[in-house]
C-alpha cells in the first residue's frame, strides 16, 4: 500500500512547496507560474505537448538501443582481445574528456535538424556508462569460476560467453540504469541546439514567446517520461536477473 502511496505523497508535497514559493515570493506568472496555471496550460496544449514528447521519446529509445549495443560490444571486445585493451581503452577514456554538449552543434551540422542528430547525442551519452560498467563487470569475474571452467576444459570464448558475460550482467544492468537516467539529457540538449520538434524544442520556443506556463508544462512532461522510462527499464532489468540480490541485507528486515 505504502509503495503506491509514497510517490503520490512525494509529488503532492513538491507541488505544495512550489505553491508556497509562488505565494511567498509573489513572483509574476511569467517568472514562476503557479501549479494550477501550468496544469491549465498543459491541458490547453496537451496535443502539442504529447506530439513533441513522442519525438523526444523516440530519440531516447533509439539512443538507448544504439548506445547499449555499442557500449556492450565495446566492453566485450575489450574483455576478449588483449591488444584492444591497450589501444582502445585510452581512446575510450579520452573520448569522455570531450564534453558531449560541445559536440551537439557539430552533430546537428553533420546530421541535420531531424532526429538523427539527437539520437546520435543520446547514443554518445549512453555509450560510456554502459561500456565502462559492463567492462568492469567482465573484468571482475570471480577467479575461482575461471579456474573451475578451465579444469572443465572450457575455451576462452566459452568462458566469456557462458560465465563472464552472465556474471557481468548485474554490472551491465547498473550501467543501463545510469544510461537511462542520463539519456533524456542527450536528446534535449540536441533539441536545444537545433530542431523542429521535441520537448526541448517546445521549451525553447515557449520560452522565446514568454509562454512560461507552457514551458513548465513541457518540462514536467519530460520529467514524468524520464521517471517512467527509468521505472520500466529498472523493472525489466530486475525481472531479467532474478538471481541478483535485490535488496541490501539491512533493507530486507523492513
Amino acid at each position: 500500500m505504502m509503495r503506491v502511496l509514497r510517490p503520490v505523497i512525494i509529488i503532492a508535497g513538491l507541488i505544495f512547496i512550489w505553491q508556497i514559493i509562488v505565494w511567498l515570493s509573489g513572483a509574476p506568472h511569467f517568472i514562476l507560474p503557479a501549479p494550477a496555471r501550468v496544469a491549465e496550460a498543459w491541458w490547453a496544449h496537451h496535443a502539442t505537448i504529447l506530439g513533441h514528447a513522442g519525438v523526444t521519446l523516440l530519440e531516447i529509445a533509439l539512443g538507448l538501443l544504439f548506445g547499449a549495443l555499442l557500449g556492450a560490444s565495446s566492453a566485450l571486445t575489450l574483455a576478449y582481445f588483449r591488444p584492444a585493451r591497450r589501444w582502445l581503452l585510452p581512446v575510450l577514456v579520452a573520448s569522455q574528456a570531450v564534453p558531449v554538449f560541445a559536440l551537439a552543434p557539430i552533430l546537428v551540422l553533420w546530421l541535420g535538424y531531424g532526429i538523427a542528430s539527437k539520437v546520435a547525442m543520446a547514443t554518445l551519452i549512453i555509450y560510456f556508462p554502459v561500456a565502462t560498467n559492463f567492462y568492469d563487470g567482465l573484468r571482475r569475474t570471480e577467479p575461482g569460476w575461471a579456474d573451475l571452467a578451465r579444469t572443465m576444459g572450457a575455451s576462452r570464448w566459452t568462458l566469456l560467453t557462458r560465465i563472464r558475460v552472465p556474471a557481468a550482467l548485474p554490472a551491465l544492468a547498473s550501467g543501463l540504469r545510469v544510461a537511462t537516467a542520463v539519456a533524456p539529457i542527450g536528446a534535449v540538449v540536441g533539441e536545444w541546439v537545433g530542431a523542429s520538434a521535441g520537448l526541448g524544442y517546445l521549451m525553447l520556443h515557449a520560452n522565446a514567446r514568454v509562454q512560461i506556463d507552457l514551458m513548465f508544462a513541457a518540462l514536467l512532461t519530460l520529467a514524468c517520461f524520464a521517471v517512467i522510462i527509468y521505472f520500466i527499464v529498472d523493472t525489466g532489468l530486475r525481472r531479467a536477473l532474478p538471481w541478483q540480490p535485490d535488496k541490501l541485507p539491512a533493507e530486507q528486515e523492513e
Binding site: G144, M152, L169
Partner: peptide, 27 residues
C-alpha cells in the same frame, strides 16, 4: 582432473541441475 574448491563456485544464475551439468555445457 576434476577440481573442487573451498567456495562452492556455483553460478548464481543456474539452478542446481544447471550447475551440476555446467562442465558439459562448457565443452
Amino acid at each position: 582432473i576434476a577440481y573442487m574448491a573451498q567456495q562452492d563456485l556455483l553460478m548464481p544464475w543456474l539452478d542446481a541441475l544447471g550447475n551440476v551439468t555446467l562442465g558439459a555445457r562448457l565443452r
